[in-house]
Design a protein around this nucleic acid. Structure first.
Length: 442
RNA sequence: GUGGGUGUAGCUCAGUUGGUUAGAGCGCCUGGUUGUGGUCCAGGGGGUCGCGGGUUCAAGUCCCGUCAUCCACCCCA
């Protein structure tokens, strides 16, 4: 062998990760659970290319996202870029295909996105998002459904303590309009969005600096936005303060309907938190806005956020497409679940391990494996007729709970020895009773 | 993009004011135990000290650069 050839150092790019089974299995399990929820609401899956023409993607999320975009010229001289979220590609998709899809259209999309920003805990340059949107309807029922889905996903993943913070842009706009500040709304909302992070004083200062808000106006905004109390108490207060404004009244009514829906669905009230300070920095939200926080890990940030927008695809089509949706950050969620010990689920790749006692009897083992698989069991047959100690050790290390031993003695009697590696107990089981016995053990 | 911390065996980490063949625990492999894992006993393999350069008689240790990672800011998922 030539050891002269210099080896290439195996490595991955910053912010890009390998997923060995211990990571890939929980991720697949998560995606399965999330998908099940989407489907239970009648959402259909779509997929789009990772790579798009740069002009499709740039300029949609502001300077920041343009800077973070992986962009290059392909071999055909095209200016292309990797998608940095799933929303913009969906807008393009909707503009291109809405004629065939019909409205309302409900889709979910699970896939990787890329952002060339600095890495941090739960933040990578390649990460998975799960987006779900209903487009083509203005009905508040669609907004309610999105919130219910967020709730059901987190519940399905095993989270107990979380809260979906909701607000309505019409409430905020009504508030600003009542103060004569409709003009500076985007800048004011961007400042407001930082409330939880930098505090009321700095927010007031920023609003005064960037949006020509008078100190008294800032005080009133912050007072309204920081109303405390139960969800219905907050609504009452809002009603009193700005309920006479038509737009605000609509927003308040929609939020009231959302609360009623959650109550009707029997969801604990503390999982939905009316929070007038939630604005979402993005300009395009026009109605409901969502931000989901884990009570036990507030520092990790929002793990699922979104809202209602007036027109998704206006950049690509004259067709008016209002919608509402949210996106879930899978990798951030996985980091959270890891931290909270929700990821400890068995990662065993199989339920039953079949020992290959002798190579001569391979067909016997393949036959039984097949029978068990047909019965829905996950079965691994060891590829080599190595010593049984080796094979059992292998099965044990993988966390496979049950092993099937069928050597000459068992074959002569027409039985299998089933050894439960969890307690070390073995039992002889007749060939005919095998499937039922194993299923009972799992 | 800015500021800071950390890189020594597969993992978690020791390693003195620079000083000879760089250590431990766990894991891994082999044997005790060719029909029984997880316990026990004995033995074994495994490290260009992230990488590159510099200072020095001498660098894991000091200096510079670089890459990776973690934390904060920013932004977000």
């Amino acid at each position: 062998m030539s050891d002269k050839k210099p080896l290439i150092q195996p490595r991955t790019l910053k912010g890009f990760r390998d997923f060995p089974p211990a990571l890939a299995m929980p991720r697949e399990q998560m995606i399965d659970k999330v998908r099940t929820v989407f489907r239970s609401y009648g959402f259909a899956p779509i997929d789009t290319p990772a790579l798009e023409y740069a002009e499709i993607l740039t300029g949609k999320g502001g300077d920041e996202s343009d800077k973070q975009m992986y962009r290059f010229t392909d071999n055909g001289g095209r200016d292309v870029a990797l998608r940095f979220d799933l929303t913009v590609p969906f807008a393009r998709f909707a503009a291109q295909h809405i004629g065939q899809l019909g409205t309302p259209f409900k889709r979910y999309h699970v896939g990787p996105v890329w952002r060339g920003e600095n890495t941090q805990h739960g933040r990578y340059r390649e990460f998975y998002q799960c987006d779900f949107d209903t487009i083509g309807t203005n009905a508040n029922a669609a907004d309610i459904e999105i919130a219910l889905i967020i709730h059901d996903i987190l519940a399905a993943l095993g989270f107990e303590r979380f809260s979906i913070h909701v607000n309505h842009r019409l409430v905020l706009n009504g508030l600003l309009a009542s103060l004569g500040l409709a003009e500076g709304a985007p800048a004011i909302l961007r400042a407001l969005d930082k409330l939880a992070k930098i505090g009321a004083e700095k927010v007031a200062a920023e609003m005064q600096a960037t949006a020509a808000v008078a100190p008294e106006q800032a005080r009133q905004i912050l007072e309204t936005v920081q109303i405390k109390g139960s969800n219905s108490e907050i609504l009452e207060e809002l009603e009193k303060k700005i309920g006479q404004h038509e737009r605000a009244a609509t927003g308040i009514a929609n939020l009231r309907q959302l609360l009623a829906a959650f109550a009707a669905a029997g969801i604990p009230e503390n999982r939905l938190a009316l929070d007038v300070s939630i604005a979402r920095g993005l300009d395009y939200y026009t109605g409901t806005v969502y931000e989901t926080l884990l009570d036990d890990l507030p520092g990790i940030g929002s793990i699922c956020s979104g809202g209602r927008y007036d027109d998704l695809a206006s950049l690509y089509s004259k067709q008016h497409l209002p919608g509402v949706g949210a996106s879930l950050g899978l990798d951030r969620l996985m980091a959270a679940m890891d931290e909270l010990g929700l990821l400890q689920d068995s990662t065993a790749p199989a339920d039953v391990f079949v020992v290959q006692f002798t190579e001569e009897s391979l067909a016997h083992y393949i036959a039984v494996s097949r029978r068990l698989r047909d019965a829905g069991l996950r079965v691994e047959l060891f590829p080599e007729a190595k010593g049984m100690g080796k094979q059992l050790k292998y099965a044990d290390r993988k966390g496979i709970p049950l092993t099937l031993i069928g050597g000459p003695d068992e074959m002569a009697k027409g039985v299998w020895q089933v050894k439960d590696l969890r307690d070390g107990v073995s039992e002889e089981v007749g060939d005919g009773d095998l499937v039922e016995y194993l299923q009972g053990k799992l």
